[in-house]
Simulated assay, not measured.
Amino acid sequence: GGGSPSAFPRHIHQHPPGLAPAPRITSNLYPGDVVATNSHLLLFTHCISTIINISLEVANTLCPDVRYLHVPVMDGPTTRISSCFDSMAATIHGWGHVGSDAAALCCWGEQVPTICLADLQKNNSTSLAGTHAWIEPCHPILQPNNGFWQQLIYYEYKHFSINRLQKISSPLGLTPNVYENELGVMLLL
Rank of each mutant, 00 (worst) to 15 (best):
Y155L: 11
T91L: 15
C116M: 05
A104V: 03
I141H: 12
I141M: 12
S87W: 11
S87R: 14
Y155E: 06
C84Y: 10
I153C: 04
N163H: 14
I162P: 05
S100N: 11
G109P: 03
T131S: 14
S87C: 14
L142N: 00
N124D: 12
D86L: 15
K122C: 03
C107W: 02
E136N: 10
L120K: 04
W134H: 07
I141Q: 14
G130A: 11
L117T: 01
I162C: 09
H93V: 01
A90K: 14
Q150E: 13
L105N: 02
H93L: 11
T126F: 05
W95C: 10
Y154H: 14
C138H: 00
T131L: 07
I135W: 05
V112T: 06
T126E: 09
N124V: 11
P113L: 08
P140F: 09
Y155K: 06
L142A: 00
N146W: 08
N145R: 07
L105A: 01
H93K: 15
M88E: 09
P137F: 03
I141W: 13
W95E: 06
M88R: 08
W149R: 01
T91H: 10
E110Q: 10
G94A: 00
S161P: 02
G130S: 09
A104M: 02
G147I: 02
G94E: 03
H139G: 00
G130V: 10
S161W: 02
N145T: 09
W95K: 07
S161G: 00
H132N: 14
K122F: 08
N123M: 12
Y155F: 15
L128N: 06
T126I: 13
F85E: 05
S100A: 05
Q151Y: 03
Y155P: 03
T126Y: 04
S125F: 14
Q151W: 02
K122A: 08
A129M: 05
F148M: 07
Q150R: 15
I115K: 09
H97A: 02
E156C: 04
T91P: 03
S127F: 01
A102F: 06
C138D: 02
W95D: 03
L120S: 05
S100I: 04
W95Q: 10
Y157V: 10
I92E: 04
C116E: 05
S127T: 13
I135R: 04
D101Q: 10
W108R: 15
Y157C: 06
Q151T: 01
V98S: 12
K122L: 12
W108Y: 14
K158T: 13
L142H: 00
W108K: 15
G96L: 04
Q121V: 13
L128M: 11
T114C: 09
C138S: 08
Q151I: 00
N163M: 14
A90F: 12
K158A: 10
L117F: 07
I162F: 10
H159T: 06
H132E: 10
A118W: 04
V112L: 02
L142R: 08
N145F: 01
V112K: 00
K122I: 03
Q150S: 15
L142M: 04
